[in-house]
Nucleic acid binder design. Structure first.
Length: 606
RNA sequence: GGGGCCGUAGCUCAAUUGGUUAGAGCAUCGGACUGUCGAUCCGAAGGUUGCGGGUUCGAUUCCCGUCGGCCUCGCCA
């Protein structure tokens, strides 16, 4: 008689000594089997709740034991039996380790082929392999835990924002291509041949329109799409917890956002996050950390030593300073113990991100015990050694690393060095969460490539009122009413107060070199809506994937997404993207370029 | 588009300066075993060294190309 698998009594992680004596029905996958010959067979049964050991005794249940002997890893089974105590033979590694199920009946629901890799946390498998067999990879306990955390965090955000009066409203996936920002994924229209929808990079304009529609407080768990190259923390489709509020100013958005994050950290990790978060201006972040998302878990600030090294004899510095550049340094406590091999390795790596090299020196005890600079560029710095040691606060045993040139490059190189040194030298404290807001970000940055100003955030961002009169005369000095929450060097979100005045919106478009005709072609709906009583509003979008990465302690975004893509945005599981029938293309009025056809043909004959 | 690392058994990896029949652990298969729990013991099977070319008496090793994976710069409002 078949065992009623639809009447499971609990999951495989639930049973405890207090359940001893109860009849149970469990179903799941064979995690492991141990066959002890004549008498005993053990099966570790796994489902998303955990693992329960099942015992088969040939003396009492010969038929079930016969079946159990044939079971192999990843077979899907259902068992019926009785919870018994393990006596002395407890397994402290399992929450269910004090009990086991004495199985009287077992049924194989589906036999598994030998899996291509073992479903266990301790067995590593190549990542493309894991993605090809993602349904097996997701059975691993850590992956299951991650997906469960993800679920809980989503619930947590939803509950929090509902309680704060937010409405969850969906926005279109098929929408309009936008000129600024990332490359769009395009969807050809069958009904309008030659015309295209775009997948949303974010629901930005729709959420602003919802504010103009009077919904006041909006939230959505929104899937967003950007056709740009991938990174360890970037996927072509990703999830944002998207917010927008009307009749608010900057303080209101910051307040509700930081409280939501505090709740999520409390609920998932039990960590109390103090609110309000500290705030740092963009200029301060760039000056002290060289990056707009500083990791405040460790010090290693960037120190401007331009004036100090001006009198040194190091040519590279002289040239940089003469060209209007700067020289900055990082003081690494204990860095003098680094080997030549280590520092040479850093030099090669920093050259890989565009630096000319990595000037450095060590602070050692000279004659009489006074600190002096040795190795590296020490001899060139001799004329300014005392002053440099004083300016950097360097002590005997430290190392000093330098970068020189344009502010942007120095910042980029030393920001990389700062976090690399902190990681390799073990300077990052565990279980520390350093939240902050980065505010007062410039509205625009100049794009050499495009020969014009481009938005740092997006074109709908409100400038600070006191900077408005410089929008035309000095756009580079205008700061935005934008705000980014950052934790441990990770940008969690990005948001701003929006422009709700058509005149200001037009001035910003003009500053961006977007003509009136183009603005109307691309944003007619927004510009029109701004003329019908648009309320002041603002919001932000939290990067859910990165939040889950932080909460689960992974540095790989693929680990927090059930079905992610490879670095080339390929899915090994579904083997997509993939070619489509000529008929489908014909319906869309699309003809492939000759070069593309040739490539496809060549690939097929291979 | 640029830089870096990698590709050897089903999986994770090793293989000396370019040199005998390319090894190990896990998985698999067969056998043993009364309490294991990442079981243990005995045995077996398992390889176009990603693919193509070159150098060489001889290539997993060196060179060129190509395909794929990862990290990264550019890019990502």
């Amino acid at each position: 008689m078949a065992i009623p698998y639809n009447k499971r009594t609990c999951d495989c992680g639930a049973l405890r000594p207090s359940d001893v004596g109860k009849p149970v029905t469990l179903a799941g996958w064979v995690n492991n089997y141990r066959d002890h010959g004549d008498n005993l067979v053990f099966i570790d049964l796994r489902d998303r709740g955990g693992i329960t050991q099942c015992r088969f005794n040939v003396d009492t249940d010969p038929q079930a034991t016969r079946v159990a002997r044939t079971l192999r890893k990843e077979d899907c089974i259902v068992v019926r039996g009785e919870v018994i105590s393990r006596g002395e033979n407890i397994n402290p590694k399992l929450p269910t380790g004090h009990i086991e199920v004495s199985v009287h009946e077992v049924e194989l629901l589906n036999k598994s082929l030998t899996p291509p890799f073992e479903v266990a946390d301790h067995v590593e498998a190549g990542e493309d392999h894991r993605l090809k067999y993602r349904f097996l990879d997701l059975r691993r306990p850590t992956m299951q835990r991650t997906m469960i955390v993800r679920h809980r965090v989503l619930q947590c955000f939803r509950n929090f924002f509902y309680n704060e009066g937010f409405l969850e409203i969906e926005t279109p996936i098929l929408t309009k291509s936008t000129p600024e920002g990332a490359r769009d994924y395009l969807i050809p229209s069958r009904v309008f041949p030659g015309e295209f929808y775009a997948l949303p990079q974010s629901p930005q304009l729709f959420k602003q329109l919802l504010m103009m529609s009077g919904f006041d407080r909006y939230m959505q768990i929104a899937r967003c799409f950007r056709d740009e190259d991938l990174r360890a923390d970037r996927q072509p489709e990703f999830t944002q917890v998207d917010l927008e509020m009307a009749f608010v100013d900057l303080e209101d958005v910051l307040d509700v956002t930081e409280r939501s994050l505090a709740v999520v950290w409390k609920e998932t990790l039990g960590v109390e996050v103090p609110v309000p978060f500290r705030r740092m201006s963009y200029d301060e972040a760039m000056r002290d950390y060289g990056i707009d998302r500083p990791d405040l878990r460790f010090d290693l600030k960037l120190l401007d030593v331009s004036d100090v090294v001006r009198a040194s004899t190091f040519n590279i510095f002289q040239q940089a300073l003469a060209a209007g550049g700067i020289v900055k340094a990082i003081r690494l406590p204990g860095g003098a113990e680094m080997t030549r091999k280590e520092t040479d390795g850093l030099t090669v790596e920093i050259q890989g991100i565009g630096a000319g090299g990595l000037p450095m020196t060590k602070v050692v005890a000279g004659q009489g015990g006074a600190p002096e600079l040795q190795t590296g560029i020490g001899k060139f710095l001799a004329p300014v050694a005392d002053e440099l040691i004083r300016a950097t606060g360097a002590e005997i045993g430290d190392a000093l690393f330098f970068a020189c040139g344009k502010f942007e490059n120095v910042s980029k190189h030393l920001a990389w060095l700062r976090s690399t040194l902190a990681q390799r030298r073990g300077l990052i404290p565990k279980d520390r969460w350093e939240f902050l807001w980065v505010i007062d970000v410039p509205m625009f940055e100049y794009s050499e490539e495009d020969g014009r100003w481009v938005s740092m955030h997006h074109p709908f961002t409100m400038p600070r009122e006191e900077d408005l009169d410089r929008l035309e005369s000095d756009p580079g000095s205008v700061r935005a009413k934008s705000y980014d929450p950052v934790v441990n060097g990770v940008e969690l979100a990005s948001g701003s107060i929006r422009i709700h005045d058509q005149a200001i919106q037009n001035r910003v478009f003009r500053a961006l070199g977007i003509s009136e005709a183009e603005a109307h072609a691309k944003f007619e709906h927004l510009l029109t809506a701004l003329q019908y009583g648009a309320p002041p509003h603002g919001g932000l979008a939290l990067g859910l994937d990165r939040i889950i990465m932080l909460l689960t302690g992974t540095d790989n975004i693929r680990d927090v997404i059930a079905f992610p893509k490879t670095q080339r945005a390929y899915c090994p599981l579904t083997e997509c993207p993939s070619p489509v029938d000529d008929k489908q293309l014909a319906e869309l009025g699309i003809d492939l370029a000759a070069s593309v056809k040739a490539k496809l043909a060549a690939a097929q004959t291979m």
